[in-house]
């Protein structure tokens, strides 16, 4: 009985230890914007999963492509069916590392400038991404925002001939997450 108890306690401690220093959300926001002379396209998604390990500065994002909402149903259809092929490649992922993690004091309420590096996977294609963002510690939560640009050619996303002038070659992406402590 005592042994079992001990093992259970160890498990418990172990799981606490693994959760400590980690922050997460499943309802982060991401939006992208494509601007051309003919058409502006923007879409947003409020189901970004993000986990940050404050000890290592490891930060990972995952988003379901089907969760992107467009103003026009037809754009959403083309996005899922033709461009992103979301049945084949259901999600996009980013596995980043905060460069200056050691200089961030997570116990202090402050806004920090961070630089993140890592592989970004969209449409089954992986490229390295490096971008600046802000990481704000406030009331026990961590607010992350960042903006970056994606070249659609880098991710082998081919645009139909009739839409060539309507979809920008470079897409701006905005991410905003509020992370809570993982227990």
């Amino acid at each position: 009985m005592q042994r079992v108890l001990l093992i259970l306690i160890c498990f418990f401690i172990g799981s606490i230890a693994s959760g400590q220093g980690k922050f997460f959300t499943k309802t982060g926001s991401i939006s992208f914007f494509s601007k051309t002379q003919l058409e502006d396209i923007d879409a947003h998604n409020r189901s970004v999963t993000c986990v940050l390990d404050t000890k290592t500065g490891n930060v990972q994002f995952s988003v379901l492509m089907k969760g992107f909402e467009f103003k026009k149903a037809l754009m959403q259809e083309h996005f899922n069916e033709d461009y992103i092929e979301s049945d084949k490649y259901p999600r996009a992922e980013f596995k980043g590392q905060i460069d200056n993690n050691s200089s961030i004091d997570y116990s202090k309420e402050a806004a920090n400038q961070v630089r993140v590096k890592g592989p970004l996977t969209i449409h089954g294609q992986t490229n390295d991404l490096e971008t600046d963002g802000t990481l704000t510690v406030k009331e026990g939560k961590i607010f992350i925002t960042c903006e970056f640009k994606v070249e659609i050619a880098d991710y082998k996303i081919s645009v139909a001939a009739f839409a060539k002038n309507k979809v920008a070659k470079t897409i701006s992406v905005k991410v905003s997450c509020v992370l809570e402590q993982l227990k």
Binding site: A17, G19, K22, K26, D53, N58
Partner: peptide, 15 residues
């Protein structure tokens, strides 16, 4: 140790 190692591996999986 196993727990620690696991937690380091893939953060997204920890959810």
């Amino acid at each position: 140790c196993a727990f620690l190692a696991f937690s380091q591996d893939d953060l997204l999986k920890s959810l």
